[in-house]
């Protein structure tokens, strides 16, 4: 297939796809107009039935709880897959905390230590980030956010410790075994929280806790505990993946020295 044939082939296909695209766009509902009853019903009923002010969280963790469990498992499996792919053969384990290996020094790429200002500013942000992450997780049913977003913010805190130039502290905080256990416990908690509903004769993930007053932290029944489990699983998973990536990059650097 030479260049000319290829171009004609592309043009014909592009025209066909453009036609289909235009006809699809013409049949779309007009911009900003929602068609279909479910969204309106949810908007009307959520606060009344679940005592929750954030409808998205209610949909994610209550009305479509099983779907979220599936997403959670996808995240878990992808983290496991990454860990397995990037695992180290036991012969190459080394416990070096030194990023500044000789291969870099030789090429005139020695690593400047982060300045005191950077260190103070970065490490000073770690505390507020942890508090903010916990707030996002705990208030998932009241304000935008929830287990996933809060978990990512919580995972960012140890990453900042690494970025401040303190690899040793990062490795201590993000202890690999602890993080993996946290990841597993998060998913396990989600799975177990679904069981009480079944035991009481209802469906899986059915609410069994009192609903409380809407607008308060302790409201919405099961949604807050499930959010906390999701937060633990997400933050642990993200830290675990970053740890392995980091380890792998540094490890290649050290191997290059031999």
């Amino acid at each position: 297939m030479n260049r000319r044939v290829r171009r004609w082939f592309f043009l014909i296909c592009a025209c066909a796809i453009f036609g289909l695209f235009v006809s699809a766009v013409r049949q779309m509902p007009t911009f900003g107009h929602y068609r279909g009853p479910y969204g309106d019903i949810l908007n009307r009923e959520t606060v009344y039935e679940r005592h929750i002010t954030d409808v998205v969280t209610a949909v994610n963790f209550d009305w479509r709880g099983i779907d979220t469990l599936g997403e959670e498992s996808i995240l878990f499996l992808s983290v496991i897959g990454t860990l397995v792919l990037l695992r180290k053969p036991s012969s190459e384990v080394n416990d070096s905390h030194d990023e500044n290996d000789t291969a870099d020094k030789r090429k005139g790429r020695e690593i400047p230590l982060p300045s005191a200002a950077t260190r103070v500013a970065t490490l000073g942000l770690v505390g507020p980030l942890v508090v903010f992450g916990l707030y996002i997780v705990a208030h998932g049913h009241l304000t935008p956010g929830g287990g996933f977003q809060g978990g990512v913010i919580l995972a960012t805190a140890p990453l900042l410790v690494y970025l401040a130039g303190d690899l040793k502290s990062f490795k201590r905080i993000a202890n690999h075994e602890t993080v993996q256990i946290g990841e597993a416990l998060g998913l396990l908690g989600f799975l177990i929280l679904g069981l009480p509903g079944m035991i009481r004769g209802g469906a899986y993930l059915r609410n069994v806790l009192p609903l409380g007053t809407s607008g308060h932290v302790f409201s919405g029944g099961m949604i807050a505990p499930i959010n906390v489990c999701t937060g633990v699983a997400v933050s642990a998973g993200l830290v675990a993946v970053t740890y392995v990536f980091l380890e792998h990059t540094l490890e290649t650097r050290l191997r290059g020295r031999r």
């Binding site: 996002i136 935008p144 996933f148 995972a155 980091l246």
Partner: peptide, 22 residues
């Protein structure tokens, strides 16, 4: 869609560039 926006902000700020850079 503030929920989605918050996901995008938190992931896109630190975690995503760090993965790419590593």
């Amino acid at each position: 869609a503030p929920d989605v926006a918050l996901s995008q902000i938190t992931i896109g700020a630190v975690a995503l560039p760090l993965m790419f850079m590593l």
